[in-house]
């Protein structure tokens, strides 16, 4: 069975190491904060200038001056820091953020990512995505393996305008965990009950399958 959004987020959360600084994009990546395993501590960075983002506020705690990068009301944890946008992107561009998790329209075998612009549709902007993919040490892309018409999103070469080049090393989809290296996708894990054949069928870019591919642990 293909994973649900929450199950993808659960698998993403297993990537985090104890003591990691993590930036989570909007959507499935944000859900990963709910599934950080016991015994692992991560600190969430929000690129509008907050390191140590906490949960959403109670009605009494709501403060118009406390928002996250998705412009949602938010709280800060004990030990958080708040700073300006240049400082925030200095920590992103300088490679100080350990993990960035973000969604994408397409990823290709060279680690290129397209996530912000579909020609012909209104372009709203890249926000901080280009900075994040150019700067973070480990970038994890979450997306469905194929679009709703069944077209693969893992391609030989991205067709949409890029967000960044040669930057994606790990992809977690509803079907599989893959690494990107040496001009190919490398299948590492499959979703419970999903066959290697199905993943091959839905991966348009070069896919390398070596040995027995284990099912994911969620």
């Amino acid at each position: 069975m293909a994973l649900t959004r929450d199950q993808i987020a659960m698998r993403v959360a297993r990537e985090f190491q104890d003591g990691s600084y993590v930036n989570l994009g909007i959507g499935i990546p944000t859900l990963a904060a709910n599934y950080v395993p016991d015994g692992i501590e991560v600190m969430l960075q929000s690129e509008n200038g907050l390191l140590g983002m906490g949960r959403y506020p109670t009605e009494d705690e709501v403060d118009a001056d406390m928002i996250n990068a998705g412009k949602e009301t938010v709280t800060a944890i004990a030990g958080a820091s708040i700073f300006n946008s240049a400082e925030s992107f200095a920590m992103i561009r300088g490679g100080h953020v350990d993990f960035t998790v973000l969604g994408a329209f397409e990823v290709d075998v060279n680690g290129n990512i397209a996530s912000w612009m579909i020609p012909g549709k209104l372009v709203k902007g890249m926000g901080g995505a280009m900075d994040l993919v150019a700067g973070a040490k480990n970038i994890i892309v979450t997306m469905t393996h194929a679009d709703k018409h069944g077209n693969s999103k893992l391609l030989p070469s991205c067709t949409l305008p890029l967000t960044g080049v040669n930057c994606i090393t790990r992809i977690i989809t509803d079907l599989a965990v893959l690494e990107v290296a040496n001009g190919a996708f490398h299948l590492k894990e499959r979703a419970p009950g999903v066959s290697v054949e199905e993943i091959k069928e839905k991966t348009a870019g070069k896919l390398i399958v070596e040995g027995n591919i284990p099912e994911m642990t969620l």
Binding site: T58, G70, K71
Partner: peptide
């Protein structure tokens, strides 16, 4: 006025 764009509350609220 300090208008809030997206007011999101903790689950219990």
């Amino acid at each position: 006025e300090k208008r809030i764009e997206r007011k999101v509350l903790a689950k219990e609220d």
